[in-house]
Simulated scan of single mutants.
Amino acid sequence: MFLYNMSLISFDKKTWIMIAVIAAAVLLLLLYISVHFSKGKRKGRAAERKVGKYLKKLGKKDRIRIINNAYLPLYNKACEVDHLVFGRFGVLVVETKGISGTVTGSGKNLTHTIGSKTHKFYNPQLQNKTHMDNVIHHLKKGGFENTPVNGAVVFSAKDIDFPSEIGMDLKGLEKFYNSLPDAGCNQDILYHYFIKMQVRNPLKKMWIRTRKKND
């Protein structure tokens, strides 16, 4: 048997920092795995895939370009946008909700009721406005300040009842998309501009995804 004197073991400052970073990364990974495979997250991802496919089908003849789950810089942080759609109309910023049940209320916080359970959640219109403002900011930085930016909150489930002023269903999305006027924008240039600016850091993306609520 060997006995070790722990007092003889010493680490320099850089080593301690590396240990702390690795520990934080492991904890974040475990949190991400726990949240990623939760029922709510699975439902949210399924809703995003459903709306993403629907948008692709809607804009096929117009040769639109789409970035699903776009991670954009936001000051010294970042935000995740469910769908960024680029077409001759400019940019369409889409927030997807995959919830069922009933949504009521107005203002900052809405009420979601499903069965006997009720909880408050942040108004997705305000959430999407933050994303739109971020997109507008980046467009101005890139010299695209005249590019129109529109937003849509889409409830993808069939068994959902909600006020018309806070969102639309898939049929409503189709009607809204078809109403967007041709602004003469180049969707390919816009698409590649936003592709290049996306956040690449996997830890930062993991943190954003973990915090986001896919209601």
Rank of each mutant, 00 (worst) to 15 (best):
G142K: 07
V149F: 00
C79K: 06
L180Q: 11
G90I: 07
S179D: 13
D161H: 13
S7K: 13
C79Y: 01
F194R: 04
V93R: 11
R209Q: 09
G107H: 06
P181H: 10
L170K: 15
N150L: 05
L8E: 15
K57C: 07
K205G: 08
V26Y: 00
K205F: 07
L3R: 14
D161W: 05
F176W: 09
A183L: 14
I160D: 02
H131R: 13
I33R: 12
I208L: 07
R49D: 15
F176A: 07
Q198D: 01
M6S: 15
L74T: 02
V93E: 09
K57W: 11
V199D: 10
V21W: 00
F37P: 11
T147G: 03
Y71R: 00
A25D: 00
K57D: 03
H119A: 09
F89M: 10
F176H: 11
F2E: 07
L203P: 00
D159K: 11
K43H: 13
N134C: 09
F144M: 11
I114L: 14
Q198E: 05
K117N: 12
P202C: 00
T15R: 15
T118A: 12
F194M: 07
L30S: 04
W16G: 11
A20F: 09
H112A: 04
I33L: 15
V21Y: 02
K97L: 03
R42H: 08
K57Y: 10
K213D: 10
I166E: 01
T118H: 07
N201L: 06
R211E: 01
T113C: 06
R65N: 08
L28Y: 00
R200S: 11
M132C: 04
K171P: 00
H137T: 04
I64H: 03
N123F: 05
R65G: 02
K171C: 02
L8F: 10
S116P: 04
K158T: 08
G87N: 05
G90P: 12
Y193Q: 13
T130A: 15
M1C: 04
I189P: 09
T15H: 11
I9A: 15
I9P: 09
